[in-house]
Amino acid sequence: MSSDFWIILTACLVAALNALLGSFLVLRRMAMIGDAISHAVLPGIVIAYFLSQSRATLPMLVGAAATGLLVTALIEFLNRKVKLQSDASIGISFTFLFAVGVIMISYFGTNIDLDQECVLYGEIAYVPMYNIAVGGMDLGPRQVWIVGSVLLFSIVSVIWGYNRLAVTTFDPEFAASVGINVVFWQFFLMGGVSLSTVVSFESVGAVLVIALLVGPAATAYLITNRLTPMIVMAIIAGVMASVIGYYLAKYLNASIAGAISVVIGIQFAITIVIVSIRRRYNRLKYEPSQNAPV
């Protein structure tokens, strides 16, 4: 199959994954935690690399997910126990962990062939270069399989915990009052975000990960009025932006991740315009017309 197909498929899978989890983050006003996690997992990846002495995927994922949970715990701790504002808690936690990761890399120096460029800016165009083959049969790029399985796992988990995720997002005090473990569901979500962030930014880079976590969910939030449609719409918007972004990049001969991010921004802007026009139109419809008796 053509490399176009694989790149678009990877982008769509990454988009769907991030739109799904991003919907909950946006509603919990924690959109920027994706940014934090995507940086904070660096030391986890380095340690996993160091312990396993390989760039195998599984240890990396475990290391990343563990650090993701660690940064979530750190943020929760600073926010709830130390009573630091949540943005300050996020800022301190992830810059600290990211810096630890950077120091680790420079300390172990040449022993580690982790590409920092790739970690931050991941290049989706290279995805088709790392195919996996079983028994001589080409099964397509490794990334497609990794992101695909994390997506499947996330969908199953979200469906399983859907009502709990919804109620702890909308009204955590009520949720606690009926005996739901609010902290568990917070970590459940954050564990998923850590996992998805790390598999995503390996292929599309940190910036597009944030764009995909926040943009489609924010767009969907504007045009839907229930949770399930919002999530579905976010996934559709993310997938659409990926396809359009890919061809835009090809046409302009520009970076694919950059083009997708731009399309996400444009999508959001167009939605705002449409929503406000619709609102104004509705208002005109109900306001007394000029001919009405004064």
């Binding site: 509603l27 997002t169 909308f170 009204d171 939030y221 229930r226 949770l227 449609p229």
Partner: peptide
């Protein structure tokens, strides 16, 4: 105590 802009009926 809750955000009434939450997408729910």
């Amino acid at each position: 105590s809750v955000d009434w802009d939450f997408p729910a009926t």
